[in-house]
């Protein structure tokens, strides 16, 4: 391909230098973070030998446990809700005749990707505050709703891509063979859409798990998620415990991303 035209970007001056700088700046901090999570001492900058003590201490820390469970619960519900909405939105934007205002709808669905997160966070804070006063409800519902909302575009994009890549004649063939619209969806579209749905849900899950800004604004007292808990810790004293928690989160995310990669590669 590139050799056909005689142009090969790898042979340009400075290519390897730039590549190395990019990789180092991307990965060196992460590598250091992981390394110091195994530090025997209590510094995140001075190596004092190998130990798993910070993992043990994080595991035993009630607040960490609490925040982890809360994070997982929120991420689970947010992934479920946003993926369900995303499936419907994806169907409505791929399986209909192109309509007036299609682009506006598309932009509206992907709004969380464009509006600065801090704006959404402040808006939600004010909005939910009003509801809290009216209803007196202070549970996790607010966080779940907020997370569901900003996870929608992340779930929507892979599902829509999958739907667009699907052969429409399959659905026509099913309709031709006496399947009603619902049966076509249930028997033909959905089974082929699964990889997209799974990918969307996993992405939404990871995005929710990772969120700080909106969570920080929307959470009530005692509703720390893992990221906001860690942020709180960093304000006081930094121990490798934070590194240990981060490393576990990193491992979880990497696992999800790898799974995402394999799921989206499932034969169309």
């Amino acid at each position: 391909m590139a050799s056909d035209t005689g142009f090969d970007v790898k042979r340009q001056y400075g290519f390897s230098t730039i590549a190395v700088i990019c990789f180092v700046s991307l990965y060196l901090p992460v590598i250091l973070l992981v390394v110091y999570s195994f530090n025997a001492g209590s510094s995140v900058a001075i190596w004092e030998g190998f130990s798993l003590q910070w993992y043990r201490s994080a595991w035993a820390n009630d607040q960490v446990q609490d925040a982890t469970i809360r994070s997982l619960v929120i991420a689970f519900w947010a992934a479920l809700i946003s993926t369900s909405v995303a499936v419907l939105a994806a169907l409505a934007t791929t399986r209909v005749r192109r309509f007036r205002g299609y682009s506006a709808v598309f932009a509206a669905i992907n709004q969380p990707l464009m509006v600065p997160e801090i704006v959404t966070a402040v808006a939600l804070l004010i909005f939910f505050a009003g509801i809290k006063v009216q209803t007196g409800y202070t549970g996790l519902g607010y966080l779940i709703l907020a997370h569901s909302a900003f996870c929608i575009p992340f779930a929507y994009l892979p599902i829509r891509a999958r739907l667009q890549g699907m052969d429409l004649t399959l659905e026509q063939a099913a309709a031709d063979l006496y399947a009603s619209s619902f049966q076509v969806f249930r028997r033909i579209t959905l089974p082929q859409l699964w990889p997209g749905i799974l990918a969307g849900a996993m992405l939404a899950f990871v995005i929710s798990l990772d969120d700080v800004v909106i969570t920080e604004f929307v959470k009530s007292a005692g509703q720390d998620t893992l990221p906001t808990y860690m942020l709180g810790q960093l304000r006081r004293v930094v121990t490798p415990e934070v590194n240990a928690i981060s490393t576990v989160l990193l491992a979880l995310s990497v696992t999800m991303v790898i799974a995402f990669f394999f799921v989206t590669r499932i034969r169309k």
Binding site: D167, T169, A174, I188, Q192
Partner: peptide
């Protein structure tokens, strides 16, 4: 209908 690309359900 027999479709041009057969449209068998994969």
């Amino acid at each position: 209908t027999v479709f041009q690309n057969y449209a068998l359900f994969p």
